[in-house]
Every structure is written in structure tokens, then in C-alpha cells.
Design a protein around this nucleic acid. Structure first.
Length: 483
RNA sequence: GGUCUCGUGGCCGAGUGGCUAGGCAGCGGUCUGCAAAACCGUGUACAGCGGUUCGACUCCGCUCGAGACCUCCA
């Protein structure tokens, strides 16, 4: 896997095989989940599923950020969640819970597995305070007016602040602007460990220094350490978190625990929309619900959660991914083709005189692709090779022997639904009543066709089409599929 | 301005020092009552300019272009 620390691909060796500890930065629950949340969630879901598939026992920790953080506009230190709460006249925890529930629903729709532990920052203030105390005791932090800051220059004496992001402290210092309200810090590079709360601040906790709230990077360090230990295998998140968030995590954990916290850092790339960065200011930010319902003005239609998942997996996680109607529709059709083949596969029967089709190689290539830094697009390319074989087997131009048919079933079970997490949507095909009705309808249409009563057969087909049911006449009979 | 990433055929998107990625769209064909689906065939793609090399889309340099971060926040 590619390790951001070394900027190269490394062979992955777990610290305590078969156990693996993985921490991923989760959402701040003050608004609906958008595309920027879907990408890391799906990316690390893939990692989680694959490592588990290989037989590792993975403890996957993904946090919920629900404590004081600053709004990026001119709110002068007002807590994001507190601000929203005041506006909507709700308790902060009510807001947090509301958006947490909605986040979970969206993730379920995307078929993202729940992490092993999903700790809330607000539930770990004590751990964070303890860690800050340790940093103070060791002399790498200082208190000013009830706030505590991390001393980056002192840290940089013995360690390298910037190992992850490839930055040098000297460069950072010379490039930093002086901002108002930062006078408490000794250096502009220092970051807050604890912030004293302003009187208007609703979310606050008592601490040895002031009533306030933990600084931005504390929660990940404290909770990662609590559940995964001083040092763990994988830490993931978006590339935008690389600096300063992850850099600060490394610094504070290294001092507090005496060793670098993480062995492999993984960062997923960002999403663009029509080639442009997604952002509120650009008016192209899309929530997942916008996409699933098709209500966003930039969308020509709704795209299902599984389409979005498939689309994300069609690109490698370290590449930027561009959203456009054209690209999404391509993904939608590709997904339909893949799922239709999965369905067809169930009906195939083995034949004795089959020529070997090389299914074993396809399966092997899928493992090779996943082993090479989780290359899901390569897996998908291989799966479409399998799709071609399945469809050819269906119309009789190819045959599969029992052994290869079994391998094919294994391929789809393991890679399509198990590892990629691609499963059929809606109630198609798994309902006995619907199946029976459809069978009857198809038979009636077949009889009409035999009588050359095409008016009737076409009417049946058209009426079903208006219900989004597609009729497919093949050599071996007629099948149907929900579009 | 600094650090870093990237620039692949109509669109999305893999990959490699010489050998087919894949999906979608297009074109031709097979099948079909027709259509759809499926299958078969089909594209002088690798930003530009130099250099290294027997050979570069793949390595090096420069130019142009795009993006991320450099500040509080995720």
C-alpha cells in the first residue's frame, strides 16, 4: 500500500498480525453528509472489507466530531455546533444527534459497513485533558489565559514537524501571515490543545485551565491511542487533512506516548465537480441526499447510492475524481450491466465439454490488483472480462465447466458483493410474488408473439417499460430487470 | 510567493521503458417480428518543447495548464 509518510508503496506488515488497527477521520456532524464524506467512507470501507476478507482481524475506528470547532467565516471563535444550535434553537447535542443519524442513514445507503468503534469526541474529553496534561508536564505545551498551545519549535528541535506533508518549519514560518487574535501563541505555527470558551460558547467542559473545549487535533490522538494503542497500523483520511491536522496528530502523540503513532498513513484524493473544486462558495456543493433524489440544479437526474459507490470505486482512491452527469450515467449503465451479469450467473449450468476460460486468472488478477494499493478500477476491469464470459455462456457461444462456474460464483461473491460492496438495489428479483407475476406476464407475452400478435406483445413490453421494468429477449428465453 | 500532486482517445478512468486496461458514447455486423439486451469487429490517446535511450506516453529538464495545502475549521 502507498504510505504518505514515505511517498511510496510499501509492503504492508501489521504490527500484531492477524490484528490490525485502523483509524479514519470521520465527519463533523453539523450538516448533511456530502460527496466529500462519501469518498473517504467508501475508500476505507474497501480497505476494511479487503483486509477482513484476507482473514485479518481489523479494529476499525472512525470518530464523530461533535465538540467545539470554529466556523470558517468571521464568527470569531464561535463553536460551529453552538452556532447552528442557537440558530435553530436546539440543544447542541440534539443537533449532533440529528446529523449523526442522517450520516448513518447515508452510509447505510452506500453500503458502507459500520466501523468497529465510532467514538464521539464529546465522550472523550477526559482522555483529551489527560493527554494535554502529559504534554504540559513534558514541557512541550504552554498555557496562556486558560488556553493551551503546543510548542512546535521545541518539538522541531528533536523531531521533524512536517515529516508527513514534506514541509520545513523554516518555510512555514516565512510563509505564515500574521493574523489578528493569535497573539496568545508564541509562534504562529503552534496549535491549540485547549481553548478557553467565550461566554457565548454553549459547548464547554471544565478543565484545569479553563471552561472550554479541546483543540482541533486532540480528539484523534486521544481516541486513536485509547482504542488502538500508542502505535497502530493504519491512519486514513482525506488529503486535505494532511496538513496541519495529521501533522499535528503526529507531533502531539509522539511526545505524549514517546513514539510515532502511525505506521501507514493513507490519504484519499478529493472530488471535483465538472472539473471544479467542490465548495459552498462555488455553489456546487452537493449533499448525498441531493444526489439520491436528483434535486441539485447541476444534476440532470437522480443517481442511486449504489451508482455513487460504483462510480467512486471506478477511480483509484489517490486520484481526483470528477463528477459530471455524463460520467455518472456511464457508471450507472456499467453498474447495471455488472449486476445483470451477477443475476445471469445464478442461472448458468455447467457443461462437461467446456473449454477452459481462464476464470482462475481473472480471480488471481483481482487479488493482484487489490494487493497493489487497493486498485479497485483494475478489479472492475477484470470483472467486466468475467461479465463478457457470463453473457457469452448464457447465449451459448461459450461453455463453462463445473469447476470454472464455481470459481466464477466465488469471484462475484467475494469481489463484487464482498469486497467492492456492490449489491442490487430495490426489491427486484428477491420477491416470490413479484417473480411469479412476472413469469406469468412473460409467458402471456410469449404466447402472443407466437400468434404473431405483436400489438399485444409490444403493449406488454411498453407498459412494463413505463414501470421501469426492462424485458430482455435472449436466445435462451426472456428475462427481466428493474432499470 | 512556498510545498506537493496531476495533465491519457468524444466523456470518465487504469497502467507500463518496446506487448489489448476497462466503462460509457460512436460506427459496422450477428441475433431479433421490431426494439432493447447480449455478442463480434472497430479508434495513428497519452499537454507542448528539448534531453537520456536501440526504443518513452512511461525517466530527466523547461514551458504552458489544472488542483490541494500553506490561517481558524473539518
Amino acid at each position: 500500500m502507498y504510505n504518505t509518510l514515505s511517498r511510496s508503496k510499501e509492503h504492508f506488515k501489521p504490527l500484531n498480525s492477524p490484528h490490525i488497527g485502523m483509524y479514519v477521520c470521520g465527519p463533523t456532524v453539523y450538516g448533511d453528509a456530502h460527496l466529500g464524506h462519501a469518498r473517504p467512507a467508501v475508500t476505507f470501507d474497501l480497505v476494511f472489507r479487503y483486509l477482513a476478507h484476507l482473514g485479518f482481524k481489523v479494529r476499525y475506528v472512525r470518530n464523530i466530531t461533535d465538540v467545539g470547532h470554529l466556523e470558517n467565516d468571521a464568527d470569531e471563535g464561535e463553536d460551529k455546533i453552538a452556532r447552528k444550535a442557537r440558530l435553530e434553537k436546539l440543544e447542541p447535542m440534539e443537533v449532533v444527534h440529528h446529523y449523526t443519524v442522517r450520516y448513518h442513514r447515508n452510509m447505510d445507503q452506500l453500503n458502507v459497513l459500520r466501523p468497529s468503534i465510532e467514538p464521539h469526541a464529546s465522550g472523550h474529553v477526559i482522555e483529551q485533558i489527560e493527554m494535554i496534561s502529559t504534554l504540559l508536564r513534558k514541557g512541550y505545551a504552554y498555557e496562556v489565559n486558560g488556553s493551551v498551545y503546543f510548542d512546535v519549535e521545541r518539538y522541531n528541535g528533536k523531531h521533524h514537524y512536517g515529516v508527513l506533508s514534506g514541509r520545513k518549519v523554516e518555510d512555514l514560518v516565512s510563509n505564515t501571515r500574521e493574523l489578528a487574535g493569535q497573539s496568545e501563541k508564541r509562534s504562529s505555527l503552534d496549535f491549540a490543545l485547549w481553548k478557553k470558551a467565550e461566554p457565548s460558547h454553549i459547548m464547554r467542559w471544565p478543565s484545569p485551565w479553563s471552561d472550554g473545549f479541546p483543540g482541533w487535533h486532540m480528539e484523534c490522538s486521544a481516541m486513536g491511542c485509547k482504542y488502538l494503542g500508542d502505535q497502530f497500523d493504519i491512519h486514513g483520511g482525506g488529503m486535505d487533512l494532511l496538513f496541519p491536522h495529521h501533522e499535528a496528530e503526529i507531533a502531539q502523540s509522539t511526545i505524549a506516548n514517546g513514539k510515532a503513532p502511525v505506521r501507514y498513513w493513507m490519504h484519499n484524493n478529493m472530488i471535483t465537480i465538472n472539473g471544479q473544486k467542490m465548495g459552498k462558495s462555488l455553489g456546487n456543493a452537493m449533499s448525498l441526499d441531493d444526489i439520491f433524489t436528483g434535486t441539485h440544479p447541476l444534476l440532470e437526474k437522480a443517481y442511486s447510492p449504489m451508482t455513487i459507490r460504483f462510480f467512486i470505486l471506478m477511480a483509484h482512491y489517490r486520484s481526483t475524481l470528477d463528477f459530471s452527469n455524463e460520467a455518472l450515467q456511464a457508471a450507472e449503465k456499467g453498474l447495471r450491466k455488472l449486476l445483470a451479469a451477477a443475476d445471469t450467473l445464478k442461472q448458468l449450468t455447467p457443461s462437461e465439454d467446456a473449454v477452459i476460460q481462464g476464470i482462475e486468472n481473472i480471480l488471481q488478477d483481482c487479488y493482484t490488483a487489490m494487493d497493489d494499493d487497493f486498485n479497485s478500477p483494475m478489479v472492475i476491469a477484470n470483472l467486466f472480462e468475467a461479465v463478457r464470459i457470463i453473457n457469452s455462456a448464457k447465449d451459448g457461444s461459450l461453455r463453462l465447466n463445473a469447476q470454472e462456474l464455481k470459481l466464477m460464483q466465488q469471484l462475484f461473491e467475494d469481489f463484487v458483493s464482498g469486497i467492492l460492496g456492490i449489491i442490487p438495489e430495490g426489491a427486484a428479483g428477491d420477491d416470490k410474488l413479484v417473480d411469479g407475476l412476472m413469469q406469468t406476464i412473460i409467458e402471456l407475452r410469449q404466447e402472443a408473439r407466437q400468434r404473431k400478435d405483436y400489438a399485444t406483445s409490444d403493449k406488454i413490453r411498453d407498459n412494463l417499460a413505463s414501470l421501469n421494468i426492462e424485458i430482455k429477449d435472449g436466445r435462451e428465453g426472456t428475462s427481466w430487470q428493474v432499470k
